Amino acid sequence: MNTNLMTLEGRLNAHRKLLVSLVALLDTVPEARETIQRLKLEQETHGDHEEDPGIDPDEAYAVQRIAAQEIMDIIGAGIKRSASEDRRHSGEQLELGVDEA
């Protein structure tokens, strides 16, 4: 792999990790959670409102679907991380004998 592709891949991976962390944080805020869920739903239903691309969709359509899938993957990973952290913190509180108010 050439240096330019390695640099691009490294940067994309860093951006994705950062975005997943931000989604996980935002998922803890009720107002933001609604927005995140709406954005994910928009990506899931995005293709339903467009013309049928046919058997061999053009590159623009393919790139658009890849982008929509990446958004759904990032949001999904962030929500899973947030839920995992919630479960972990709940378990820690129970171990310490802290009552949930």
Rank of each mutant, 00 (worst) to 15 (best):
G91Q: 12
E50A: 12
G97M: 06
L12W: 12
S90G: 06
H49R: 11
I74F: 01
H46S: 13
A83S: 12
L5I: 09
P53M: 10
R33V: 01
V98C: 05
N13A: 15
R88Q: 05
E9N: 09
Q69D: 15
N4W: 05
A24T: 02
H15E: 06
A62F: 06
P30T: 03
D27T: 02
A60K: 07
G78V: 07
E100S: 12
R88L: 03
S84M: 10
I66Y: 15
H46C: 09
K80Q: 08
I74P: 03
D86F: 05
A62H: 08
A24H: 01
I74C: 03
A83I: 05
I74L: 07
Q64L: 14
G47N: 03
K17R: 11
K40T: 02
L41T: 03
H15C: 06
G54C: 05
D52T: 07
T35W: 03
R33W: 02
E85N: 12
S84I: 00
I74H: 01
L5N: 15
A68M: 08
V29W: 08
A14T: 07
R16E: 08
H46G: 12
A62V: 08
D99P: 02
S82I: 04
M72N: 12
M6T: 13
S21I: 00
L96I: 01
M6Q: 15
A60P: 01
E31Y: 09
R65E: 13
L12K: 14
H49W: 12
S82N: 13
L19R: 11
D56P: 00
A60H: 07
A77V: 00
A24E: 00
E85C: 06
L8K: 14
G76K: 06
L41P: 00
H46Y: 15
R81I: 00
R65H: 11
G10E: 14
